[in-house]
Design a protein around this nucleic acid. Sequence first.
DNA 1: AATTCGTGGGA
DNA 2: TTCCCAAGAAT
Length: 347
Amino acid sequence: MSTRAQQLLDWYDRERRDLPWRMAPGKKADPYKVWMSEIMLQQTTVATVKSYYRDFLQKWPTVQDLAGADLDEVLHAWQGLGYYARARNLHKCASVVTREYNGRFPEEEKRLLELPGIGPYTAAAIASIAFGAKATPVDGNVERVVSRLFQVEEKMPKAKKQLAELASTLTPEKRAGDFAQAMMDLGATVCSPKKAACGICPWMEGCEARLKAEPTDYPKKEAKKPKPTRKAYVFWLTRKDGAVLLRRRPEKGLLGGMMEIPSSEWSEADITKQEALRHSPASALLKELEGGVRHTFTHFHLELTVLSGRVNGNPPVNGVWVLPEDLKDHALPTLMKKVSKHALTTG
DNA sequence: AATTCGTGGGA
DNA sequence: TTCCCAAGAAT
């Protein structure tokens, strides 16, 4: 094994973090748990994932249990975690593994890659961590560490291919899973985005960014585009019994499959209240609530104005009437929780 | 190949 | 307040 790999593994054996999905040293990993944690950790912090991970495993201890659940139940459990396509693919993947693989995840990276929600990173992570294969998962941490170690000048995301190749040259034949987790721990704790604790880094000696430049200047990045702001009116419609109207969003796209408070189209162009009213699911005398709801997604800001009113009788609508105390039983994304809270406290 | 996908915490 | 960005994948 190369000195470099050994240095990092030694560091990992001393400093490794105790995480819920991380098995004791030398102990065999449960592929289902590795998979679950890796899907949840996609673009999501360790701190945020922990409680969801525990809840999911308690609720669905095996992949067969998860496959047997209703998608809506999975989306409900996933609410607040974001990137809801992950939940839809999680459920789909559980079905495929249960049905086509008899409940056992395939061991080969190539076959893992064919499963829903599993891309290059996750396939390599499962292959190495759960099955001990020599694979190199490349996440943001690995890209950052490698870009500094070799002082890669190419900007992201163009540098991704080069960084992945460099990373794979580092991976040892044995303990590839530990090595991968060590790289990620290193990036998360020592070689972090805004500060590099080079003094305690196991790789300080050969790090080119430390020797010849400023480590935190890497990886180099292209300038980001500004986020546009979209606006809309949301309709907080209540029935005589106090129930509020919810409806399900389309399966694909933003917040796909989740429940929502009905609204006009989210548009960058200004819309008048009168124009928006034509999109109300039911007629009612609507009053504009003070304040509003602001929310920021990955690529745009959203400003919502809440229109609140009571409908007459029980009009036919595309949706479901839900009592405020029962909102918790539905798969509401954080944005919609903000809206309901605003309406319930302001209205 | 560039966009589209959430959310919360920290600087 | 605003910006950054976190164990990426799908299209």
